[in-house]
Every structure is written in C-alpha cells, then in structure tokens.
Amino acid sequence: MISSPVDLSATTIAVAFAGVFLICFMKGAFGGGFSIVGIPLLSIVMDPVTAGGLLAPLFIAMDLFALFFWKPSTWSKPDLALLLPGLVVGIACGYLVFRFLDHRAIAIVMAVTTLIFVGIWFAGGGKINIRPRSTSKAITAGFASGVTTMVAHSGGPPLAMYLLPLGLTKEIYAGTTSLFFTVGNATKAVPWLLLVKPTMGVWKLMAICLLAIPAGVWLGWRLHGVLDQRQIYRTCYGLLIVTALKLLWDGISGYVA
C-alpha cells in the first residue's frame, strides 16, 4: 500500500512535530514503549497508516539519541537475552498479520489483557512486588511485543507486563526498555516502509520532525531523574491504561467504521 499524500501546511507540520516531540519525551522519561500516546495527535492530520510510515524511520533516530542517556550500565542483559529473540520473531509474524490477517483483533486482545494486568496491580494496593525472572514469560512477552509493535506501534504493554513485576530500579527498567525498542524499531523499519511506501511529502515532514528529537528525549530524561522509584512505576502503570484504551478504541472502531 502507498501512504496517503500529506499536505505540508503549517497545521500539519505543527501537529506532527508535537506528536513526535511527545513520543520522544516518553522515550526519554521511560525508555520507550509508550509511543502510541503520540499517535492520536498525528492522526489529526493524517491516516494511521501514513503515520506509521512517518514514524518508522524516526523511531530509529529517537532510539539512537536516547541511548546517549540510557547507557549499557542501565541494561538488564539477562532479561534482554531472553526477550530479544522473541521480539524479532514477533515482528516477522506481525508483518504477516498486517498483510494477511485481522490486526484489529490483535489490538483488542492486547488491550483487554493489559487492562486486566493493571487492574490486578491496583487491586493489590499498587505495591511493587518482586517476582523471579521467568524464561517462558520473557519469551512470550518478547514475541507479543514484536507482534503488537509491528501492527500497532504499541509493543510497550507486553514488555511492561514482564519487566514491572521484576522490581528493577527505575534506571535499569528505562535502559532495558530503551535498548529493547532500539532493536525492535530497527528491525521493523524496513517491513513498515515496504508496507507503506511513504510519499515525498511524508519524507519531507519526517526531516522536519527530526528537529523535535533532541529536546524531547532530553526533557523526558530530566523528568525521569526527578521522579522517584514509586512515582515511575505508578506512572508506567497509568500509561498502560492509556495505551490499552487507545488499542481498544482502534480495534473496535476498525470493526464499526
């Protein structure tokens, strides 16, 4: 499919710039995984498929800049060793889902699963209960994240459902998430560009939006430094609700449109 033409008006540029800035801010603050919060802004001025084509290369630039802050000392290497193979396989499966199957159902299932996970956490008093590392859960989370990041630019919920119960420090949580999505976004960029085939207008808008990346990531990173461990975890769980509701809306509205 070819992305729809984009009108490079001042409104389009301003809205797209704001959307990319918001995604970068979330990446700086939490390491990534919540990029879907900026997509509703982009959807004001372009269709979701075009937004996906715009974001796919930008994610790589965001990730590379974010790694200046989330250095190797903040990566949980044992968890990444378990998560990354499933992520790559999940992206490949997500590509097939996007082309041949109903990705709206995937969005709905992931949204409901995420809401149940968050509901259980809040019902338990919102405590950080540390659970042991699980190979099977890590592989499942990596795979599910790969599928959902490919079909909906929202691989955060499965990863968070695995990492948050481990009780990692806020720096290790953010750094591990950042590297995870650096690998994921680099892997899915080519499949997305093959699916969407951005127009010249999209490429021009992409170049403009690159300017939002440094300030957005840096400001998010500064916020991360201000918040304490409990605030970071509460915010992440809150963002999971926002992400799940957006996924649920996308899935259901796709059936009734």
Rank of each mutant, 00 (worst) to 15 (best):
G155S: 02
S253H: 03
K127Y: 06
V97A: 00
F30P: 04
Y95M: 09
A257G: 10
S136I: 10
L211M: 01
A51V: 00
L219W: 09
T74P: 10
G175A: 13
A257F: 02
A244T: 09
G251P: 09
D102I: 12
K77F: 06
A141M: 00
L240Y: 08
G251C: 09
Q229W: 04
P165G: 08
G28H: 03
W121Q: 14
T135D: 10
P165N: 11
I106V: 13
I252M: 15
A123K: 15
L87C: 01
M200H: 15
I44V: 15
A123S: 15
L240G: 08
V190C: 14
I120Q: 12
C24H: 00
G33F: 05
G146L: 14
L245P: 14
V217T: 04
V112Q: 08
A51S: 12
R230D: 15
T187N: 11
F25R: 13
G254D: 07
T50V: 04
F100L: 11
G94Q: 05
L223K: 14
V226S: 12
A123R: 15
V15Q: 08
I39R: 03
V242Y: 12
S253Q: 09
I232F: 05
L80R: 04
P214L: 07
A174W: 12
G155F: 03
P40T: 04
V196T: 01
K71M: 09
L101R: 05
G52T: 12
S4Q: 14
W221M: 01
P198D: 14
F34N: 10
D228A: 03
H153D: 09
G142P: 04
L42N: 13
Q229D: 07
P40M: 02
T177K: 05
S136M: 08
W75N: 03
G251H: 04
G52F: 10
V49D: 04
F59H: 09
G38A: 01
G167A: 11
L41P: 06
K71N: 09
E171R: 13
S4I: 08
G156A: 04
S4F: 03
P85D: 01
L101H: 02
G124Q: 11
L84R: 03
C236Q: 11
M46H: 02
A16Y: 00
S76R: 05
Y233S: 14
G146D: 15
V256D: 06
K127T: 09
P5E: 01
L84E: 03
G38V: 00
W75I: 05
A138R: 03
L8Y: 00
W121V: 00
H103N: 09
W249A: 07
L84T: 09
A257Q: 07
L80K: 02
I36V: 06
L248Q: 10
V49F: 02
L96V: 14
L164V: 02
F65A: 01
G201E: 11
A14W: 12
L210G: 11
A10T: 07
A66V: 06
L87F: 04
G156Y: 12
V89M: 14
N185A: 01
D228H: 12
M206C: 02
P72L: 10
A16F: 08
G184T: 01
S3T: 12
T12F: 07
T243H: 10
I91N: 10
V118P: 04
D250N: 04
T182E: 03
A257K: 07
A107R: 07
W75S: 09
D250I: 13
A51I: 03
L42F: 00
L166F: 08
P214A: 03
